[in-house]
Design a protein around this nucleic acid. Structure first.
Lengths: 190, 190, 190, 190
DNA sequence: CATGAATGAGTCTTCATTCAT
DNA sequence: TATGAATGAAGACTCATTCAT
């Protein structure tokens, strides 16, 4: 008996993300993914039940990677602001290091797929964000608003900004990033 | 000869938006659109060169509708803050009145299609936003930041918030909207 | 009541021949013909029952034109050889003056369409050829062979030769034509 | 994996030729070919890139078969006349044994397809004919004419004659064949 | 584990034709 | 007479998926 060939699995994962970013959802077929991954289309079905399952697993893997990167060095011993800044800087690093992952996620999140998948479960992965905001509210450092609102005003604008930069092929410099962090903080601070 | 039937054109437009929102890009086929619009698939090709052209025209039409709604009552005689609030409230009205249009746009904007279409031209439709922010900066009311940044911190969070509400089937109440507007202003004011 | 518009009829006729020569049978559609003829597809159905009828009428018209050209100045007062040479020279003139007609005919004649159309009737148009050969045989000037055979050895080679020239974009010069006529005569003379 | 099924390939080949001869170019569709070959339409695309590629490969295969048959027993040790007669008799055998192949070729050669395919390369397959004629001219046995002309007067009439017979459902008897060979020789001999 | 072969169902698109004007 | 609109049927081709090896 032979073992799971992680090279192939990885190649399929990469090909999927690349193609969806390059040509979009509706033009990305299993056979194109297979070709890009230098693998037979049938091989994909060894590791994934069907096309949607492939997308879902790809999505989960990226989301995992993202939360992993996002919360490095973020723990309860730090102040709310320290955690806030660390999370944002980690997020920016993630987006810039794994552009394709990020754009893939954006595309998925704006499609009807998440509805189909009932995605509450993944929320748990982002627990540290909720905790940080809750701590901030409790300590009266942050505005007493719904946490989704705090996210929408502090984290999402950063993502949006980077998205624009990625699409224009430009880079966000340190000064701009500092400004952005300041604006995020201004928007949510009490 | 028969005359151009605008009902058919409209039905195709509606069906396209509905289906893309319901089942997503890759599952929306011309024949499904035709069926939903109670029209022959061939009829679609009378009014649209091909599938992508159909999407593009649909996109343009919605974008037009959106800018039309967004700037009602917004003119240079108003203060920066008045214009700011009006635009945001118009935008919120648009999103809530034409949920499907909004979600369609989000889906398009996060796909690789816009890159293909080279969309700078449509920026002109949103001139009033740029003017408002430029005026605000000049009058030292607003932060001296890149305008994309101001947009990312004041307008997009609102969209994001509403997106969440739409997907959850909840409504944004007046109090929440007032808070949001305040947060937007806090984020960008000098 | 309006009258038959011969310009339109002619434009359709021309467009049909052009397209069939350029892109072939299977790629020539009514709508392409209509576009080339600057006419609505529906207009074609005023003058022709259906697509096959269009082809058939086009074929007949060309065949008529061809026999008309081929027998100019050919009558019983001339000797067999005179008639023979005249017919061949007329035929060469026809092919060179109306290349498209000729190539269209060749294409039709090598398709299964003639079988469908039962084309004995058009043979009568080429009566003078048969008479000439019959006279030649009776006068023991020509070989006592089946007339189709005499045609195959005297007239068809000329057509074949010109076909090659047409496809290469070259011209048959007078010397070559004289040689060809000599070879034709050698092949069939007693 | 499953192995390449040459029966399927052959069935597709046969079906293509049959249909093109029976109903012509424009009515022969991939799905009809598939049905006739008892194969899924998709299977055709495993072996052929597209419809035109299918036609082209079919054409090449037939042309190969034809040259193979045509030059059996034809070599330089034979006299020019011996080679001439052998080639013609082989050709006649080929046409009568593989009527469908022959008619298919005629139909292709009179369509615009060959122009698209730039067919000089296949000329090399028919080298022995050119060599025979060149030898004949050098030995002053044959007329000093362009070789295409010699072909047009000696070989093509035979093809034409057989075409007529095939379409009428009649057979060329030995006496007729002998006459034809004599006429061919008369036309080209010095 | 891996894959080329195979296919029914589906894709987008064009077809020949008719109809209302 | 002339034609844009309309469409069911069919076109070529690709899809996601399965199977035999």
């Amino acid at each position: 008996m032979r073992y799971r060939d992680d090279n192939k699995v990885e190649a399929i994962f990469d090909a999927t993300i690349q193609l969806i970013n390059e040509i979009g959802f509706s033009d990305t077929s299993i056979s194109k993914i297979a070709k890009r991954a230098s693998v037979s289309a049938a091989t994909i079905y060894i590791y994934h039940e069907n096309k949607e399952d492939l997308l879902y697993k790809t999505y989960l893997k990226i989301k995992g990677k993202m939360s992993e990167e996002m919360f490095q060095g973020v723990d309860h011993t730090r102040t709310v602001y320290e955690r806030f800044e660390a999370i944002i800087r980690n997020y920016v690093d993630f987006i810039q290091s794994f552009k394709e992952y990020f754009l893939f996620l954006e595309q998925i999140m704006n499609s009807p797929l998440p509805q189909k998948w009932c995605l509450e479960d993944t929320a748990s992965q982002f627990q540290p964000i909720f905790e940080m905001f809750e701590d901030g509210i409790r300590q009266e450092i942050l505005k007493k608003e719904d946490i989704n609102m705090l996210i929408a005003y502090s984290i999402l604008p950063i993502a949006e900004l980077l998205k624009t930069h990625l699409k224009n092929g430009t880079m966000l410099n340190n000064k701009q990033l500092d400004s952005a962090i300041k604006m995020s903080w201004d928007a949510i601070k009490a």
